Amino acid sequence: MNRLLAGGEPCRAIVIGALGRCGHGAERALHAAGLDPTRWDLIDNLPSLVPLESSTAVSADLLPHLRGLLDATAPWRRCADLFATKTTEELPDD
């Protein structure tokens, strides 16, 4: 089958998204048919500042709340109270 296109050219195949579930299946099917497909995936290996900027922003927003964790300030007290309430409630009979 490798050489059976009109004109005698070898068959070619490309699997886009070869690392995904469907891509793996497509690749196996092409191999079973005697073809060696070209695998292609969009993987961005370029360095990016977006994760750094996001981490910095989240850290800056969270830090004031973390400072109040040991003092049980309002957000942490509400969380602890809600946790205590929910863990002592009886579950409904199903």
Rank of each mutant, 00 (worst) to 15 (best):
A6C: 04
T56F: 12
A84G: 10
N2L: 11
R78S: 08
V58S: 11
R77W: 08
T85D: 15
L46A: 14
C79E: 15
G25C: 07
V50F: 12
G17F: 01
A80N: 07
L69G: 02
L49H: 09
L46G: 13
E27V: 02
I16Y: 04
E90N: 09
H24E: 15
G8V: 05
H24Q: 15
A13T: 08
L52C: 09
D36V: 14
L30R: 00
T56Y: 10
A80W: 06
S48E: 09
A74E: 14
N2P: 12
E9K: 10
R39I: 02
L4V: 05
V15L: 00
N2E: 14
S59K: 02
R67T: 00
E27P: 03
L49T: 09
H24I: 04
A33V: 05
L82T: 14
S54R: 10
N45Q: 08
W40F: 09
L30K: 03
N2G: 13
E9H: 08
N45G: 15
E89V: 00
G20F: 10
G23Y: 00
G20N: 12
A74S: 11
L69S: 00
T87E: 14
E90V: 12
T87V: 00
E89F: 04
L66H: 06
G8N: 11
P37R: 01
L62F: 08
S55Y: 05
L49I: 09
H24F: 06
G8T: 12
C11N: 07
T88H: 12
P10T: 07
E90A: 15
E53K: 11
T88S: 13
C79Q: 15
I14A: 04
S48A: 10
V50M: 11
T88R: 15
R78N: 10
L70Q: 00
C11A: 14
P92V: 01
T56A: 14
V15W: 01
T88N: 12
E90L: 15
A57G: 06
L62C: 09
L35W: 02
C11D: 04
W40E: 09
A74C: 08
T56E: 11
D61W: 09
T38P: 03
M1L: 06
G23K: 01
D44W: 13
A72M: 15
V58Y: 12
R12S: 13
W76V: 00
A57I: 04
W76E: 00
R67L: 02
L49G: 10
L42C: 08
C79F: 13
C11S: 08
V15A: 01
L66V: 04
P47S: 04
A33S: 05
L4S: 12
C79G: 08
I14C: 04
A13D: 07
L69P: 02
A32T: 06
G8E: 13
K86I: 01
A26L: 06
W76R: 01
L63S: 06
R28H: 15
